[in-house]
């Protein structure tokens, strides 16, 4: 149901005035097919787990989301480093797009993690090392996005955000390490989110989840990148127009 609404959006963006192109249209269609296959296998064909029951189906969307949230962070750090080094706007926009999409997938991870925890552990939230570090990741990403969306000149925003983005991956590592020590020092090793052994159709569903979510991630980053590029063009043009207007005023008076 939900995939269909996404479908009408993703496939109909091939018009001349949009962020779509032939490549992204094909990518969008492939993504939708992959998501359809994921729904088929994840919700219908794959069996329930012996220990987790039906809740194992949440894993097929939760685990890929978590992985891609980290991929997005790496993209942001790489983009920030190249921007600071080469002053390349292209990479700066990649960093921005990566961070925003990463924040989306982090939100998915947190929500699905909590919805998995309720039937499995009986509570929405436990101070599990992975859930906690994912929550910290969300806060770090929100910090980056807050700086990147400042109402200031492009140079100021981009450079300051790049410093924050540069430190994103080191921070994620340190936070993960500290949270892991913190939890393991105090209680028995945390409950693992992934099942002990996943095989057959369950493994295939998880694999499909990875493919479908990776495709969706790429599609989103490309489109978000183009929107960010357009935003900067409009910003710069608005400034140019304002300067031209002022100059014209000067000539008249």
């Amino acid at each position: 149901m939900t995939t269909e609404t996404a479908g009408s959006v993703e496939t109909s963006d091939s018009g001349p005035t949009s962020t779509g192109s032939r490549t992204t249209m094909i990518l969008g269609i492939v993504t939708l097919i992959a998501l359809g296959v994921l729904v088929l296998f994840g919700l219908i064909l794959s069996p329930a787990d012996e220990n987790q029951g039906e809740a194992v189906r949440i894993m097929y969307v939760h685990v890929p989301s978590a992985t891609l949230s980290y991929v997005g962070c790496f993209l942001t750090t790489i983009g920030s480093v190249v921007y600071l080094w080469r002053k390349s706007q292209w990479w700066e926009l990649v960093a921005y797009a990566g961070a925003e999409v990463a924040a989306l997938f982090t939100a998915f991870t947190l929500v699905t993690g909590m919805l998995w925890g309720r039937p499995t552990w009986g509570v929405f939230w436990v101070w599990d090392a992975r859930l906690t570090s994912e929550a910290m990741l969300m806060l770090l990403l929100l910090g980056y996005l807050a700086v990147r969306r400042l109402a200031a000149d492009y140079e100021v925003r981009a450079k300051r955000a790049a410093i924050v983005g540069l430190l994103l991956v080191p921070n994620v590592f340190i936070v993960r390490q500290s949270v892991q020590w913190w939890r393991t020092l105090h209680q028995t090793p945390t409950l693992s989110l992934s099942g002990a052994e996943i095989q057959g159709l369950m493994l295939f569903s998880l694999f499909t989840g990875f493919i479908a979510f990776t495709l969706a991630f790429i599609w989103m980053v490309i489109h978000r990148f183009r929107v960010a590029w357009l935003e900067e063009q409009v910003d710069a043009e608005g400034l140019d127009a304002a300067i031209a207007e002022r100059r014209a005023e000067g000539v008249i008076s």
Binding site: T2, T3, A55, R57, V61, L104, F108, T112, L115
Partner: peptide, 12 residues
């Protein structure tokens, strides 16, 4: 819970 997770993720 399964339905809510999938709906939220795909809807999101």
């Amino acid at each position: 819970y399964v339905a809510a997770s999938w709906a939220l993720v795909l809807g999101g």
